[in-house]
Design a protein around this nucleic acid. Structure first.
Lengths: 144, 144
DNA sequence: CTCATTATTGCAAAGATTTGCGGAAACCAA
DNA sequence: TTGGTTTCCGCAAATCTTTGCAATAATGAG
């Protein structure tokens, strides 16, 4: 539906069994325009498949993350996920004060990415990269 | 002892009460050359102050982090901490396969830091910045 | 189709970290 | 000192996420 059919095929080809549980989790994440918390994914999944366990949701999300299908965003102390959009890749800046999320073009990480790879042989997981900090709004609010 | 006395003074000046619990937590972290897990901090603290609660350790570590006295390093699914060394600042790269930690000179983040600040007004918390990925050792091991 | 093999799930429990709350400790002014 | 105020702590419980395990479901060979 939301253009993640190819991901399903790819996962199947890789030997994963695309069970109703997994398909449902992926559908929920793909159906949201932004990021979704793990608990919200679970709540949505349960509407169609009431027996699905939260552990399965977490395991599926980790699997989808590992395979590059979804991107993880750490907001506050909670994990959120969104469908990885290859046509519109981006990273995330999260404000530790108000939990606001801003997106960041991959260009900003290109150089760091290359340098870590070249100079240390370290392959950073830029896809699931979230940088914390304080957004401009909260900075000005703080200094009052 | 380990050169964190000035931090204690500063915290006191800021209005924090430097209780035995807090001093003990700081002492333990400062006494280690590298990073320490929260649970290990607790175990060490309990040797001198057996009644100290784990929640207090966590609260203190967060306080020290907030005030820039210690740096947080996310390793696997656990939080580690080390004394912030202003003379030898560095960030961390953590391998998601083997949990190995490499340090990274601040120079690598300077440009990103400035750009986020300048272009978005976003003040990234580079101090407690940990970037995940796969280290060179695990990369070669993977491709076999 | 049947059997053997392997992957996946639900369930329950463990782990790691955070939070609410009443009491204790620290601080400050008189 | 003493009393009043604020901060901090221990305790217990909650929250979020991960993990072990036995049962179930999917897969592939014969």
């Amino acid at each position: 539906m939301s253009g993640h059919g190819s991901a399903v095929d790819r996962l199947r080809t890789q030997g994963y069994r695309m069970t109703p549980q997994r398909l449902s989790v992926l559908d929920i994440v793909a159906g949201k325009s932004g990021h979704v918390g793990a608990d919200e994914v679970w709540n949505q999944v349960k509407i169609q498949h009431p027996y699905v366990d939260l552990a399965t949701v977490y395991r599926t999300l980790q699997l989808l993350k590992r395979e590059g299908v979804v991107t993880e965003v750490v907001i506050g102390n909670k994990l959120h996920f969104e469908l990885t959009d290859q046509q519109n890749r981006h990273h995330h800046m999260v404000c530790s004060h108000c939990d606001a999320v801003q997106t960041l073009s991959p260009a900003y990480l290109d150089e760091l990415n290359r340098r870590l790879q070249r100079e240390f042989g370290f392959a950073p997981d830029v896809e699931n990269f979230t940088i914390g900090g304080v957004c401009s709004k909260c900075q000005t609010a703080e200094s009052e």
